[in-house]
Design a protein around this nucleic acid. Sequence first.
DNA 1: TCCTCTATATTTAGCCT
DNA 2: AAGGCTAAATATAGAGG
Lengths: 219, 219
Amino acid sequence: MVNMRRKTKYSLIEDEASRKRSFIKRKKGMMKKLAQLSTLCDIKTCAVIYSPYNPDPEAWPSREGAEKVISDFMEVPMDDRNKRSFDQERFLRVRIAKEEAKLQKMRTGNQNFEIQNIMFGCLKGEIDVHKLGEKDIQDLNSFIDTYINKLTCRQNLMENGGSSSRLPLSVVADAVVVPVGDYDHMNQNQNQQNLIQRQKDDDLAITAADVGAPNTTNN
Amino acid sequence: MVNMRRKTKYSLIEDEASRKRSFIKRKKGMMKKLAQLSTLCDIKTCAVIYSPYNPDPEAWPSREGAEKVISDFMEVPMDDRNKRSFDQERFLRVRIAKEEAKLQKMRTGNQNFEIQNIMFGCLKGEIDVHKLGEKDIQDLNSFIDTYINKLTCRQNLMENGGSSSRLPLSVVADAVVVPVGDYDHMNQNQNQQNLIQRQKDDDLAITAADVGAPNTTNN
DNA sequence: TCCTCTATATTTAGCCT
DNA sequence: AAGGCTAAATATAGAGG
């Protein structure tokens, strides 16, 4: 047979061309599913894809639409939306777990946690800025820069929306705490334990078992 | 046969229960595909789902991850093709200019302690963010900027005139997919709806023909 | 309700043009 | 390189527990 599809290995597709083809196809499929979700469930959706194959960010259904939805999301204050329905205890537990993980990651060289820690330390006055090493300062700089942009962005969006009472500042706190929703789907554990930047190196990788199992819920 | 799956009509699922079930299943599938895309094509992804079934926005792989990628997306300079018909860029520029002005004033002031207090309070979740207004966030912004200046200064001293550290922050974000759900409980206008509807008239819309018929060319 | 099952629908990798 | 084809892989609607 000519059209024999081999069993797929769920790891990075080595061949560049194949990877690109796969990406394009899957992107298309994604869009379709997004549209279906929208139609079937009356859910508003938008997508933004920034791929290495296309210098232009693609936005669906439009850049404006994406930005609108995104700004809505960014405006949702964690205090109002997420924390509310969590019982405080669980929230604190997660937070504590995160703190511990942070320590761990710091030791294993994860940048982000380290930087966050430094930044918080500085803000708390527990760390003397002038005692930081050059690299730390660089990283901290970068981190804060990112953060500033977030603030500015939010601020602009907020003013654009005209509501100044829904200040999304709580995102700062969010930086330390991973909110745990009801992700009952597959990769829950890594949600809580890993940093975005490093995930694909760790267990974000989809294993055949993971993907293939018809039921990956946690019960 | 018991498990007779009927051909699906691709329109809004009338039955509420079915709609919810469908939404949940499809959301799950979406997440999975997102993870696959990430793994197979080395693409960073994130998703946010705001559904009417869950007052809490769900973020994958995490809220902070989503925000990071999103802020990156928002940072993409909207040059050329994207901004047309949309003057948000101009709007942002004006705001930024105003920010700069205020910042200047801020730098000459000595309210840093107060701002620091605010920021720290926010970080620890001890300050009710809803009581912070526009001015506060601006001040906070200024504070951080000042902070950065300090750091930069110090760093430059250490580097003996090395390159500046106001990093561009475009950290990662090869891709971001943001499906967002029902916004009924938010006070945002529904302009988004128009955009989506308009798009549906084009190509990505799901029609029975489009979705239902796998391949109409050969059967 | 939420889960599991499974028949069927849909997606997509590999191959072709 | 873009698009079609096909079968394997995957997703999911509907039914039952």
